[in-house]
């Protein structure tokens, strides 16, 4: 069983937003909506400031509240790699999953169903990288299988420090930010 994850090196990301544009192009994300986005997180007291630039998206959580709350089973965990997906034709647009996601990673597609990042599963199934990873000009994003101890993502997580987003919510997110 594979367990897909993304590792993003915040020391290399320059916030160019290529990943955002690639996602929108690859997935036909409607105008005004984002499946991924850039956050500039500035902490500290001037002049001792620390800035982190992050490319954020659905965390494809191991403990996904968006899946648990879905009344129709539209939100589900895909067999391949534990990716969290939405069956469009099962979704009633109740928006419970939007409220359940602490990362606000979902939105309602203009056609009425809940939408979000899919880890580009249609590409991954063909052996390709998610489009955001494929286009990153600084090569700061890595995608792979955490269940494989020799995968690039597993090795990075054993050798580098990282943090997760809102681990206190108990979602067990699968996007790791190298610091």
């Amino acid at each position: 069983m594979a367990r897909f994850a993304m590792v993003i090196d915040t020391r290399q990301c320059v916030g160019c937003m290529d990943c955002v544009v690639a996602c929108k192009t690859e997935n036909g994300v409607p105008e005004g909506f984002n499946r991924d986005w850039i956050v500039q997180d500035v902490n500290g007291i001037y002049p001792t400031l620390h800035m982190e630039i992050r490319s954020e998206r659905c965390n494809h959580c191991d403990n996904p509240p968006c899946v648990y709350c879905c009344p129709t089973g539209a939100s589900h965990v895909h067999d391949l790699g534990g990716v969290v997906l939405v069956h469009h034709e099962k979704c009633i647009g109740c928006k419970a999953c939007l409220a359940a996601c602490p990362y606000d990673a979902r939105f309602v597609h203009p056609e009425g169903y809940a939408d979000k990042c899919t880890f580009c599963i249609h590409r991954v199934e063909k052996g390709l990288q998610p489009s955001c990873v494929a286009v990153c000009p600084t090569y700061c994003m890595y995608f792979g299988d955490l269940d494989d101890p020799l995968s690039e993502v597993s090795l990075l997580l054993t050798s580098r420090k990282y943090h997760l987003l809102l681990p206190e919510t108990g979602t067990q997110p699968h996007i790791y930010y190298l610091t």
Partner: peptide
């Protein structure tokens, strides 16, 4: 100080 900026402006989600 904590300052966050985002490019995301999804309807029904942001701000």
């Amino acid at each position: 100080m904590l300052e966050l900026t985002t490019t995301r402006h999804n309807p029904m989600i942001d701000p």
